[in-house]
Every structure is written in C-alpha cells, then in structure tokens.
Amino acid sequence: MSPSTIVAVLLAVGAVSWVFRVTPIAVLPAARLPASVRRLLDHAAPAAIAAMVGAGIAGGAALSDLGPRVPVLVGAVVAATVAWRRRGLVLPVVAGLAVAVALTAL
C-alpha cells in the first residue's frame, strides 16, 4: 500500500470508530444491542491484540523457524507478566524491551 492509501485506510477506520462511539449514545438506546452481539464484541479486543502479538513475534517466519525470534517472544512474555501484576504500560514495556535487547545482544 502507498502512504496515501494507508492514510485513507486509517481515516476510514477512524470514521467507523466514531460511528461505534456515537451510535449507542446518540442514535440507538443501549438496550437494543443484543446480548449475543455484546458477548462477541467482548472477545474482539483480546483476540485482536493477541493476534497482533503473535504476528509480531513470528515476524513472517514459520513456526519451525522461530529460533531467531526467541528474544522478542521472551520480551513479550516478560511485558505481559509484569503488566498482569501492575497497572500501566511504562514498566512492562521497559522490562520487556530490556530483556529482548539483552537476549538479542547475547
């Protein structure tokens, strides 16, 4: 994709996001959202973030060729574990990145 296409895609994501944000408040009462849809939407965020973590760890490599990606994998595990125990992103990111960089340098 060209840079202008990427910007157009992101602006479209922003427009749809605004519709998501405003519809239950200004257009439809909250009660009309079916329970089944609510449950599916509830799963969307963890699924999407986890999928991005997985794709980022693999970096385009096959499962059998993940050896060079171990530092990123371990860094991700460290960040997730620290974030699980503490609120906020700064400490998990610093800890995870430090581990990933250190393992890469070894």
Binding site: I49, G56, A83, W84, P92, V93, G96, L97
Partner: peptide, 14 residues
C-alpha cells in the same frame, strides 16, 4: 519491532 510487540503484550497482560 520488538518494542511494538512488547507494548502490545503489555496491553494484553491485564
């Protein structure tokens, strides 16, 4: 690329 994955993992942890 490691920073991006680590940030996302930090968001996923909780």
């Amino acid at each position: 690329d490691a920073a991006a994955v680590v940030v996302l993992a930090g968001m996923l942890g909780p």
